[in-house]
């Protein structure tokens, strides 16, 4: 090129697109394939209960019910989860701390 001004030829665009796509194209294709499979499955599945069910806004975010459930029916998983959370936090701290301060 004689001039230093930047100019885009169609070839440059194609090349840059190509360079962008080249490492990603298979991932893209696969993701799209998976997406299409799922979307097609959803679309062609009849959801019979969908329309008959009463739609109530209050019902949809019934926080109190969730709390009650957690502390009654799911109390043991909840406690276990708390322990898992605690231990994972301890592990994370231990790992992230490193051995700077001996």
């Amino acid at each position: 090129m004689l001039n230093k001004e930047v100019s885009f030829t169609p070839m440059d665009v194609i090349t840059s697109v190509y360079n962008y796509l080249k490492p990603r194209i298979w991932g893209m294709i696969l993701a799209l394939l998976f997406l299409s499979v799922i979307v097609v499955s959803i679309a062609f599945t009849s959801w019979p209960t969908m329309d008959q069910l009463p739609q109530n806004l209050e019902d949809q975010s019934y926080i109190e019910g969730i709390g009650v459930l957690i502390f009654t029916e799911f109390v043991i998983p909840f406690e276990i989860l708390s322990i898992v959370l605690l231990s994972s936090l301890m592990g994370a701290i231990y790992m992230a701390k490193g051995d700077d301060n001996k």
Binding site: W26, G27, L30, A31, L33, F34, V37, S41
Partner: peptide, 13 residues
């Protein structure tokens, strides 16, 4: 993960 996903997709198809 790639292989698993490919497999699942192809299987469903």
């Amino acid at each position: 993960a790639t292989v698993v996903i490919t497999g699942v997709s192809l299987l469903v198809i």
